[in-house]
C-alpha cells in the first residue's frame, strides 16, 4: 500500500520518478490542482518537490499543517517563492560542476550523519548541488546540513506535530531527470525514513509510460 504522497505539478521529472517501477508502488502522485484534505487519507508522509507551484500550495497550506498535526512527515524541496512556511529561502548560484573542478570542496561541508536520511551515506551521496540557502528557519528547527560559510541547506523541526524536513537539495527532481547517477542512495534512504518501506532495484523508465492520455 502506498504511504507517501508526492505533490505533482504536472512536471515530467516528478512523473518519471513516481512512475518508475522501483517507486510506483510506494508513491502516490497527487496533482496539485486536485489537492485537498481527502488527498492525504491513508498516507503517512508527503513529498513536495522542487519545481512545485508554490502559489497553489500556499492556498492549501492548511491541509499540509493539519497533516503534520496528525504526527505525519513532510519533506520539502522548496524554492525562494515559498512563503507558506516559517523560514526564508534565498537563491544562491547553483554549482553543478564542483565535482569536476574542485572535488575536495563540496557545496556542503557539514552534515548530521546521525539523521536517519543521512546515516550511512557518503558526503558525495548526501550532496550533489544546492539551489539556495535558508537564511532563517522555524523557531525550534535544527540544522541538518550547512555550507562551508555556515549557511543552512537542510533543517528539521517537530514543532508542528509531526516532522517537517526542508532542504534546498532537489533529490526528487534530479532522480527523475536521471543525469546524476548516484541518487538512489539518498532517495532510498529518504523513502525508508518517510514510510518504513524499502525501495529496491534499478531505476527503469518504461516506454509505455510516455504518450499517455488524460481524461478531462
Amino acid at each position: 500500500m502506498k504511504k507517501i504522497g508526492l505533490l505533482f505539478n504536472g512536471v515530467w521529472s516528478h512523473y518519471t520518478f513516481a512512475t518508475a517501477p522501483k517507486y510506483k508502488d510506494l508513491i502516490e502522485l497527487i496533482y496539485i490542482h486536485d489537492f485537498d484534505e481527502t488527498s492525504l487519507d491513508r498516507l503517512e508522509a508527503l513529498m513536495i518537490p522542487f519545481q512545485s507551484n508554490q502559489n497553489a500550495i500556499a492556498k492549501r497550506k492548511d491541509v499540509i499543517y493539519d497533516f503534520l498535526a496528525k504526527g505525519k512527515k513532510v519533506f520539502i524541496e522548496g524554492d525562494s517563492s515559498m512563503d507558506w512556511i516559517e523560514a526564508k529561502w534565498e537563491d544562491r548560484p547553483t554549482n553543478n560542476y564542483w565535482w569536476v573542478e574542485n572535488p575536495n570542496n563540496p557545496p556542503i561541508s557539514d552534515t548530521d550523519f546521525t539523521h536517519p536520511i543521512y546515516e550511512g551515506l557518503t558526503p558525495r551521496q548526501s550532496c550533489w548541488h544546492t539551489h539556495g540557502s535558508y537564511t532563517s528557519m522555524p523557531s525550534q528547527a535544527k540544522a541538518i546540513q550547512k555550507k562551508p560559510d555556515g549557511e543552512i541547506i537542510s533543517w528539521e523541526t517537530q514543532q508542528y506535530g509531526g516532522t517537517l524536513f526542508a532542504t534546498t537539495l532537489d533529490p526528487i527532481v534530479e532522480h527523475g531527470v536521471q543525469q546524476i547517477t548516484h541518487l538512489d542512495h539518498y532517495v532510498d534512504k529518504l523513502i525508508f525514513w518517510l514510510s518504513g518501506d524499502k525501495a529496491s532495484g534499478s531505476f527503469d523508465v518504461p516506454r509505455e509510460n510516455y504518450g499517455i492520455a488524460v481524461s478531462c
Binding site: 515530467w12 521529472s13 512523473y15 518519471t16 536521471q178 531505476f203 527503469d204 523508465v205 516506454r207 509510460n209 510516455y210 504518450g211 499517455i212 492520455a213 488524460v214
Partner: peptide
C-alpha cells in the same frame, strides 16, 4: 521546450529514457 509525457502535441511524442 519540455518533456511532454502526455500526448497533447499532434504527431510527436517526447519519451524519457535513461538507457
Amino acid at each position: 521546450f519540455d518533456g511532454w509525457f502526455t500526448n497533447w502535441i499532434p504527431g510527436n511524442q517526447w519519451v524519457m529514457s535513461n538507457e
